[in-house]
Design a protein around this nucleic acid. Structure first.
Length: 667
DNA sequence: AATCGTCTGCTTTTT
DNA sequence: GCAGACGATT
């Protein structure tokens, strides 16, 4: 039975929770207890008699889904909580597709292509398709194709532009490879539900209460999916904040939330405005800024807690001094006030800005963590291993096959692979089929042919064993990487023994993860690969340990997080708002980005900009961001760093001397 | 097949 | 000013 208490919520939150039938729009300003409301509402639905298995809550990230699942488990009994579906859009679509994608002419064991695989395939198609004087940037093509899919545009029938031709071929080739990309997960699920009423009705029957988190970030396809599932019951509760829409460049449509009434007429609308995170100085600054945006749903954040320090605006001579000031002040505050490093975060527009901060933090021996950057799963050895696993599940998966066909080297040279690929295109079959075809083998030398046969036989062997009912995939994969001598391959390819050992232990980590997965799931190797494809967040052991420390993070990645002390650096025209966004006319989104950054702060907020900044290797002078004059002047404390440091006596110089002393002690 | 050098072109990145 | 990609070299 639910143990949550409705009266712990404020009035608006209660209204949101109690509104159980029909469309509901919850406008949840930053820090207004959104996750709490969603979980409370799920619990309330169940106390009102809803079957937990009829409830679906969709989020964007696995992290959010997990957090919600955990919170729900705390206020509901474990059995009921486990029956509620909490899923990302992509995982939900994957589930829908794994059950019935055969209706669209794919096989149910399809592979999921990540952006690397996607890019590889597009590169290949471009070189094969383009005339000599034509050029198309593969990355640009990938982005345009993604945009097209998210808008449900079909590949053009007439291939009269290179891009159109590449798009059409990319799509048909993916299908031949029995693979789908991230966009396809959404697009094909929508198509499946649209074209097959029986499938649609099954899912509609399954999910009778829908909740969507971060609704401002949904794109066209995601809205369509929600609409398709909602049916005439229209039990759709969406939660979001138009002011925090910062993913327009990835296809998110703010209009989904701005025009919610258009998509779901006569909704209940609840606005959450009481903020439990920040001081009124911070909230006032945020409100003043965001008030400059034209198209938005009015809301006024307020906090019950009084006072709070003014927001500081620092003018630094250059980016070096800016970084030095921020890091030394963090050190000083940590020492003077005993604030743990975890309470501090430095937010910026571009990842490149983290470098100077890193250098300074390292110099001062301050622990830090950089959020974002290269993923564990981008590592060579992990991609290789996953490619082998993918191949065992779906041998027609050319991208995986190409990745490992000669890794470790087994006499299957690049020219031979190119010929095989050509042959496979001519015969409209997969690379795997080509390698197993007598006709093709007759075209290559006897030695090459025997190498190919050995490889095909080995993979086929494992594939057969894997398909046996009582097979142990983890043991099989372990045996496979032993048989191919992958450890030796790593040692051969790494400069140092330590690097090889690290990579080897990464391989071990994945194999251990696989065993753990198989222990808790019945979905086998295929299920493991699905989970990995859709959750790239996980970190390895070492990184896990450095979870503590000062956080360096982009404003985009900071959405949803909060920190006691926030430093927002580089508030310069051209950086924030970014030059490119200005050119594209998305200033409003840049303003929202700054708004998101500001509202991360709980107690203190420090903004800074530089008069000069090193850009692309040379120093350029810069103007303060045009957003600065939109902030509330009465809540702002303006400080010129140079003047402050040259002041003969007073607090500032005492602090600076103190910082030097600390630095000496730390060094 | 691997490595070296030159060229290019610079955001943000939930899945 | 640097990383990533690609072509020329051994």
């Amino acid at each position: 039975m639910a143990t949550f208490r409705l009266f712990d919520l404020n009035d608006a939150q209660q209204r949101a929770v109690r509104s159980t039938e029909g469309p509901l729009l919850i406008l949840a300003g930053a820090g207004t207890g959104k996750t709490r409301v969603i979980t409370a509402r799920v619990a309330y639905l169940i106390t009102q008699g809803a079957d937990p298995s009829h409830i679906l809550a969709v989020t964007f990230t696995n992290k959010a889904a997990t957090e919600m699942r955990e919170r729900l488990a705390r206020i509901l009994d474990a059995d009921a909580a486990s029956k509620v579906t909490m899923s990302t859009f992509h995982a939900l679509c994957l589930r829908i597709l794994r059950a019935n994608i055969d209706r669209l002419g794919y096989k149910n064991n399809f592979s999921i292509y990540d952006e690397g695989d996607q890019l590889g395939l597009i590169r290949k198609i471009i070189t094969r398709t383009s005339a000599r004087d034509e050029r198309l940037d593969p990355n640009l093509a990938k982005n345009l194709i993604s945009k097209a899919k998210n808008n449900s545009w079909k590949p053009p029938e007439n291939e009269d532009t290179l891009l159109g031709a590449v798009f059409a071929r990319y799509q048909s080739e993916l299908k031949n490879l029995n693979a789908v990309d991230f966009d396809d997960l959404l697009a094909l699920a929508v198509r499946l539900l649209n074209e097959h009423p029986d499938v649609r009705d099954r899912w509609r029957d399954r999910f009778r209460y829908l909740m969507v988190d971060e609704f401002q970030d949904t794109n066209k396809l995601q809205l369509e999916l929600v609409t398709l599932l909602a049916d005439e019951r229209r039990n759709v509760a969406v939660v979001g904040d138009d002011d925090q829409s910062i993913y327009g460049w990835r296809g998110a449509e703010v209009s989904n939330i701005l025009e919610f009434e258009h998509h779901f007429p006569n909704p209940t609308i609840v606005t959450l405005e009481q903020n439990y995170r920040s001081t009124n100085a911070i909230l006032g600054t945020a409100s003043a800024l965001i008030g400059n945006n034209p198209r938005r749903r009015a809301k006024k954040l307020w906090s019950a807690s009084e006072g709070g320090e003014k927001v500081r605006l620092i003018e630094a001579p250059n980016d070096r001094e800016e970084a030095q000031f921020v890091t030394e002040e963090i050190q000083r505050k940590n020492f003077a006030d005993g604030d743990a490093w975890e309470n501090f975060a430095v937010l910026f527009r571009m990842n490149a800005q983290s470098r100077l901060l890193e250098e300074n933090l390292r110099r001062l021996n301050i622990p830090y963590r950089i959020v974002g950057g290269k993923s564990f799963f981008d590592r060579r050895e992990i991609k290789d291993l996953l490619a082998y696993m993918n191949l065992l599940v779906n041998p027609e998966d050319d991208a995986s096959l190409l990745r490992i066909i000669n890794t470790p080297a087994r006499g299957l040279s690049a020219p031979m692979v190119a010929r095989a690929l050509e042959w496979s295109v001519q015969h409209k079959c997969s690379l795997w089929r080509a390698l197993g075809d007598r006709e093709f083998l007759a075209e290559v030398s006897a030695r090459t042919a025997s190498s190919i046969r050995a490889f095909v036989e080995m993979v086929g062997d494992y594939e057969t064993k894997l398909a046996e009912p009582l097979s142990n995939p983890a043991a099989l994969v372990t045996k496979l990487i032993g048989e191919i001598g992958y450890a030796a391959e790593l040692r051969r390819n790494c400069k140092t023994a330590e690097e090889a050992a690290l990579r080897e232990s990464n391989v071990g980590d994945i194999l251990r993860d696989l065993s753990l997965f198989l222990g808790r799931s019945t979905k086998g190797l295929r299920g493991f690969l699905d989970e990995v494809a859709l959750d790239q967040e996980r970190e390895d052991e070492e990184e896990e340990e450095i979870k503590s420390g000062v956080t360096l993070i982009t404003m985009h990645a900071a959405k949803g997080l909060e920190f006691k002390h926030v430093y927002l650096i580089g508030l310069e025209e051209g950086l924030l708002p970014h030059e490119r966004s200005k050119a594209e006319g998305s200033i409003d989104e840049e303003r929202r980005l700054l708004y998101v950054g500001i509202t991360r702060a709980m107690r203190t907020l420090t903004l800074s900009y530089c008069r000069n900044r090193t850009k692309y290797g040379s120093v350029a002078s810069c103007a303060p961001s045009s957003f600065i004059k939109e902030l509330a002047p009465e809540l702002l404390d303006q400080i010129d760093l140079e003047k402050m440091l040259s002041a003969p006596v007073g607090e500032a110089s005492a602090k600076s001397r103190f910082a030097q002393m600390r630095a000496a002690l730390a060094g």
